[in-house]
Simulated assay, not measured.
Amino acid sequence: MIRRYGDPVRADRHYRRRPGVYAVLLSGDDILTTFQETPLPEFQLPGGGIDPGEHPMAALHREVREETGWRIGGLRRIGAFRRFTYMPEYDLWAEKLCTVYLARPIRRLGPPTEPGHHAVWLPVEEALVRLGNAGDRALLAAALR
């Protein structure tokens, strides 16, 4: 059973399953996050949806590069969670299946290429409060144990 975080499932909505991969990127007492401006400004674990036919690890590397501009390595699976949410950028009600990995930021390649995303280093204690969804906060806490 994968734990659910966030809003309850609404019986009046049809949700499309959307698998995604995300990274906890620690360096000392700091974590590399992405700050997404829209639809709501929030700090997030870098990552996102897996494209059809794409390997999950390739998706994780691509998403982290797009959202932070960093290359990563040393991946280890932490866990997974589900969120039922509306994704206005896709006009889609989604059941997000979020698999989270602990990884090392290896090298900054340049600025993020994903529009509206900014790479932001936060102290871990601050990130535990400021990450925009409860699943991200819970998996960060799990990575720290």
Rank of each mutant, 00 (worst) to 15 (best):
R3M: 12
R4M: 14
P8W: 02
R10P: 00
A11E: 11
R16H: 12
R16N: 10
R18S: 14
A23T: 03
L25F: 02
L26M: 09
D29I: 10
D30R: 15
D30E: 15
I31C: 05
T33N: 00
F35A: 11
Q36E: 14
E37V: 12
T38H: 13
F43K: 00
P46Q: 02
P46R: 00
G47E: 00
G47C: 01
G48R: 01
D51M: 15
R62L: 11
W70S: 04
R71P: 00
I72L: 07
I72C: 04
G73W: 07
G74V: 11
L75T: 09
R77Y: 11
I78D: 00
I78Y: 00
F81T: 12
T85M: 13
Y86L: 06
Y86S: 07
Y86A: 05
L92T: 07
A94E: 14
K96H: 14
C98P: 02
Y101S: 07
P105L: 05
P111L: 09
P111I: 09
V120P: 04
W121Q: 06
W121L: 07
W121R: 08
P123Q: 12
P123K: 15
V124L: 06
R130T: 13
G135T: 08
D136S: 12
D136R: 06
R137P: 08
A138N: 08
L139M: 09
L140T: 07
L140D: 00
A141L: 09
A141I: 06
A143C: 07
R145F: 11
